[in-house]
């Protein structure tokens, strides 16, 4: 009964893990830059980011679907109903979360710290690194929240991935399918696997946070 579980768990980890890595690589520097560099219109950018943090995944899925569909502007990539397409959708979901929470964490670091490290001879990148280091617990919380936003979402991966067995089926879409089929036992097992996965990933991130606190 649990035969299909390992590949589904693996694909779930792969899609959400890659999406989180990409969202972190882009979102942490962008969030820090947003907090550290005042510019005209920053409030509007923040408004867009904070709105993005509440984006309904199904709407993201619809937009990505339209972009990746054969007649869409990125149809040539052939990413619809593939893991790369699902990763794109999840990056769009996680990115505003990581940017917004990183920006808030960096913004809460004492402004005197920036002046202090500049006075000690830090260049712009060294200033950003010093501030990120001081805000690391908040940045870690941003990454944890980003992971939470993608591992549990179903709407975007369902639309963009299509829930194809052995190809794009992940834990959330499999739960929906098995519930509809009345296979509640398997649906519950999949749900338990999803929870275990989220627990394990958050335990790793929190362990990193404890080390950072020392």
């Amino acid at each position: 009964m649990l035969g299909p579980l390992p590949p589904i768990v693996w694909l779930t980890l792969y899609v959400s893990g890659v999406a989180l890595a990409l969202a972190t690589l882009a979102g942490v520097p962008l969030g820090a830059a947003l907090a550290l560099n005042p510019f005209p219109g920053r409030r509007y950018v923040e408004l867009v980011i904070y709105t993005g943090m509440g984006l309904p995944p199904v709407v993201v899925g619809l937009a990505v679907y339209l972009f990746l569909s054969r007649s869409g502007p990125l149809g040539g990539l052939g990413w619809l109903f593939t893991p790369p397409g699902m990763i794109v959708a999840q990056v769009i979901i996680a990115l505003p979360v990581v940017i917004g929470l990183t920006s808030a964490a960096v913004g809460s670091v004492a402004p005197g710290l920036r002046l202090q490290v500049r006075a000690l001879g830090a260049g712009p990148r060294q200033v950003m690194w010093a501030v990120l280091k001081e805000a690391r617990l908040g940045v870690l919380a941003a990454i944890v929240a980003g992971f939470g936003s993608v591992i549990s979402e179903v709407g975007a991966v369902m639309l963009v991935g299509g829930n194809i067995e052995g190809k794009t089926r992940v834990l959330t879409t499999a739960i929906v399918l098995e519930t509809r089929k009345g296979n509640f036992e398997l649906a519950l097992a999949l749900g338990a696997a999803l929870l275990a996965l989220a627990l394990a990933a958050n335990a790793v991130l929190l362990r990193l946070g404890q080390r950072a606190r020392l």
């Binding site: 004492a110 005197g112 710290l113 002046l115 202090q116 006075a119 000690l120 001879g121 280091k133 001081e134």
Partner: peptide, 10 residues
Amino acid sequence: TTVFQQPVML
């Protein structure tokens, strides 16, 4: 370099 009134410790 500057030493400030409120030293910020890293």
